[in-house]
Design a protein around this nucleic acid. Structure first.
Lengths: 203, 203
DNA sequence: GCAATTTCGTACCGTTTCGTACATTTTTAG
DNA sequence: CTAAAAATGTACGAAACGGTACGAAATTGC
């Protein structure tokens, strides 16, 4: 409503977006507990009090990183899943897009912030809730995409197929962190996509 | 060779086995970094120096816990997988046995120490290596069991089926920690077992 | 200019961290 | 009974931790 309500005091010089991405990288490398506020301060270039002002305490920094990571992943990979065309190709492309996020270079694999590091800190209720949200999100998107491709399938079969696709994605994070190569997981994703479509086509 | 070489000094009074199991429970509740030596000391009833003497530093305590947990799981669940009879039933029983480990009571789910907490701390090379070992172990046992049930299947199909079964198990840990009920995951395991066998039977 | 307002980092606080030196206790060997 | 050996916990140290009070800096309104 108000035009340019021009803020009053000293203008902010902090780039919260790039700071958030630096925090994401740190958190998915080392998890929540192993990252100190000094680590975050050094990685973002912001002083510790600045971090508090911009993002709250350490827990809310981590939860904020989960949200930002989830949004980035959704914007980058979901269009591949929901693209028109054959389901098998869509699934394969979706897996590959997610692997593009899970791997930094060809070698180093920080994996998934949500599926990779959150389970380790799920005794914090806020983290557990956000982890659950991420899993439910993937499950429901998968279900919707499969129902779109096979509208006449039994609901139980759709659900199983969706769960198997989600489980593949969830396991990718652990496998990436354990040292699996990106190409190996890409092949695993393509084979899983093929199998899941075969299941849906079976009569 | 030597009969009873009777140790010299004060006899040890520490029950390292029960101490190790207390450490396992702590580590899979809170991960590696969030657990302090004081926490471990309180949970085991041992003083901090005693922990050092018996298990080395914190990192080797965690790796030791991974090994003990893996051995327990192997002894409890692998017989179900390798039992004679239908593959679908063996897979379902194996998943259920692992869920029996992942869940403490019906509600509280500490999940899997290896698949649940290790990915978050894989920047430690020792942890990463042990995580990789755990995944490879499950993969190879799955492959062997499926080859036994379907000796004439193409190797590529066996491999895909094995990966999908492993991925189901890996994802169970994240799902358990996120709040999924044990019965929900049990149903998911049975449905996945059915699907995987269907894949192997398809011509 | 001058006061009000907002941003920002230095410096500090109390607590917790991992790790160990060392004295004490309990056993065996002779 | 004495000396060597092994196990154990108290007590300590240096460093790192999360979090914040507070003063300096930068801007707007008047």
């Amino acid at each position: 409503m108000s035009e340019t309500p021009r803020k009053r005091g000293r203008p902010a010089t902090i780039d919260t977006q790039s700071a958030m991405h630096a925090m994401i990288e740190l958190f998915r490398d080392k998890g929540y507990a192993a990252v100190s506020l000094d680590d975050l301060s050094e990685a973002t270039g912001l002083s510790r009090p600045s971090l508090y002002r911009s993002f709250g305490n350490k827990l809310s920094m981590y939860v904020g990183a989960m949200n930002a990571f989830g949004q980035d992943a959704a914007e980058l990979a979901l269009p591949k899943l929901e693209a028109d065309g054959a389901l098998e190709q869509a699934l394969t492309n979706f897996f590959d897009a997610m692997l593009g996020i899970y791997y930094r270079d060809s070698d180093i694999a920080p994996g998934c912030l949500v599926f990779g590091t959150a389970p380790s800190h799920a005794d914090e209720e806020e983290i557990k809730a956000r982890l659950n949200f991420g899993i439910e999100q993937v499950d429901s998107r998968m279900r919707a995409r499969m129902l779109q491709a096979f509208p006449d399938s039994e609901p139980a079969r759709i659900e199983t197929a969706a769960y198997m696709a989600s489980n593949t994605l969830i396991a990718f994070s652990a496998r990436a962190k354990s040292g699996a190569t990106r190409s190996a997981l890409s092949a695993m994703g393509a084979a899983s996509a093929r199998t899941i479509v075969m299941l849906l086509q079976a009569d």
